[in-house]
């Protein structure tokens, strides 16, 4: 049975989510206004305007450093480096996306090998293993799609992970992952970073095919996050026995009905810079 105190806390947390979501949506939309550009999306884009766009986007990301978790870590170092941005913006965006997918694949695979992840009692254990397996497959397909786009646009494939995030976030975080809940929360953050990065690029890239690719993937990453949030809430609430496809709905805590979609609008404050994972 779920721990009642933990479930109550979960419910309270869920209620807070609404306020938080609206506040952060506010900030995200305000950022959209601040970075508003009258850019057309039909492919006829002034390169200078793109440079300005990237500069503005980096400025916004830098501004969010304080308490920004994944969004801020390593960004200062990246922005201080003149070495990136060697190819066309769309190619860089596709390569960075591929690098984020490679990163996700590496993290899921590494997490799946942790001993405590292999010993989660069923049904949660089987559910989590199946989810990880399928999600790695899907990230692999995404990576291939982004690399195909990069090549189509005249660039190279990106075979490696987003090194900035890997070095600054993943490497230090891995030793701190002690429980399945830690892993689920960490994976949910990575999925959010992916979804928000792709949303930012949907509006930024000029190639329509690449835009379509970003658009068709961002929602899938957000679905991964939804399930991870739901699973995390059940783990945190002491109800791992409810982690299964088709859980007994009458036994789910009320908060389980909303914990998977805390935001009314997807934001971009966790988006990675378009150049970050570009092939150097």
């Amino acid at each position: 049975m779920p721990n009642n105190r933990a479930l109550s806390a979960l419910i309270e947390e869920s209620e807070d989510l609404h306020s938080d979501a609206m506040r952060t949506t506010n900030a995200g939309l305000a950022d959209l206004v601040e970075q508003g550009r009258d850019r057309r999306a039909d492919g006829d884009i002034d390169p200078d305007e793109i440079v300005e766009y990237q500069s503005e986007r980096s400025r916004l990301l830098t501004k969010s450093l304080a308490g920004a978790g994944l969004a801020g870590i390593g960004l200062t170092r990246l922005l201080a480096s003149p070495a990136f941005a060697q190819s066309a913006p769309d190619v860089q965006a596709a390569q960075t996306a591929a690098s984020i997918e490679n990163l996700a694949i590496a993290v899921y695979n590494q997490a799946a090998g942790l001993s405590f992840m292999k010993n989660i009692p069923d049904p949660a254990g089987a559910t989590v293993v199946a989810f990880v397996t399928k999600t790695v497959e899907q990230h692999t397909e995404h990576m291939k799609a982004f690399n195909a786009a990069a090549k189509q646009l005249g660039g190279q494939e990106q075979p490696g992970p987003d090194q900035v995030v890997f070095d600054s976030v993943v490497t230090p975080a891995l030793p701190t992952l002690k429980t399945p809940l830690d892993v689920v929360k960490f994976a949910a953050e990575l999925e959010l970073v992916a979804a928000e990065t792709y949303l930012a690029e949907v509006a930024a890239v000029s190639d329509k095919t690449l835009r379509s690719t970003f658009a068709s993937i961002m929602g899938v990453e957000n679905q991964h996050r939804a399930i991870l949030l739901a699973v995390g809430a059940l783990l945190e609430g002491g109800a791992p026995e409810l982690i299964m496809l088709g859980p007994p709905a009458d036994k789910l805590p009320a908060a389980a009905g909303s914990v998977g979609f805390p935001d009314t609008f997807l934001k971009t404050d966790q988006a990675r810079p378009a150049e970050e994972g570009a092939v150097k």
């Binding site: 995200g28 979804a195 949303l199 949907v202 509006a203 658009a215 961002m218 929602g219 899938v220 990453e221 957000n222 679905q223 996050r225 939804a226 998977g260 979609f261 935001d263 009314t264 609008f265 997807l266 934001k267």
Partner: peptide, 9 residues
């Protein structure tokens, strides 16, 4: 783009 991923969730 900010709404589509929410519907998918």
């Amino acid at each position: 783009g900010s709404i589509q991923p929410i519907e998918m969730q």
